[in-house]
């Protein structure tokens, strides 16, 4: 394993992570809710789950790029590459997205609900979830690199 120090952006990580943690705390203290994005999306798909706080939180997330738009290029730690539209890339993203949806629904949480909020309250279930999805993510990218001779978007 080589650590890519040139890609590592510690200040952006600390500040961005802090904002995520403050946002999760705010939702917990003000609404008594867990900032779990897969759960929020999954519940919004059901008519009975369309409650005001979920819609408001989602609206905030959707508006966040607009809010940061004037300074987006300055605050982003690296330029976001836009891959070419090819059948292979679209298929990979579509299948990947589908697996994320299926998996997070069965596991009742994703990187935010289990990873951030769950670990912050020392939940053993969340720790098991994080170890499982991180492990699976590491193995997937390692296999992709092995079979494809490299990874690119």
């Amino acid at each position: 394993m080589d650590i890519a120090w040139s890609l590592f952006t510690p200040w952006h990580s600390l500040v961005g992570g802090a904002l995520i943690g403050i946002a999760a705390s705010l939702l917990l203290l003000g609404n008594g809710q867990i900032a779990g994005i897969s759960g929020i999306l999954g519940n919004l798909l059901k008519p009975e789950g369309r409650v005001p706080w979920r819609l408001a939180f989602l609206a905030g997330m959707v508006l966040s790029p607009l809010l940061l738009w004037p300074v987006m290029m300055q605050v982003a730690p690296a330029a976001v590459e836009t891959p070419e539209i090819t059948l292979g890339t679209v298929a990979r993203l579509l299948i990947g997205g589908c697996l994320v949806g299926l998996g997070t629904r069965f596991a009742n949480g994703c990187t935010s609900g289990h990873g951030v909020c769950g670990l912050a309250r020392f939940s053993p279930r969340s720790l098991a979830a994080v170890l499982s999805f991180m492990g699976a993510g590491f193995v997937t990218v390692a296999l992709w690199r092995l079979l494809n001779g490299g990874v690119s978007l």
């Binding site: 607009l66 998996g103 596991a107 994703c110 979830a129 997937t140």
Partner: peptide, 30 residues
């Protein structure tokens, strides 16, 4: 089992796409 298998399936999708749900919502809004 649903917790572990679900998380593993999620991890595979995460590795393939580079997206988990939060960033997908924000980047799609952009």
């Amino acid at each position: 089992k649903p917790l572990i298998w679900g998380s593993i399936v999620f991890g595979v999708g995460w590795g393939l796409s580079g997206f988990c749900p939060g960033p997908a919502v924000v980047a799609a809004s952009d």
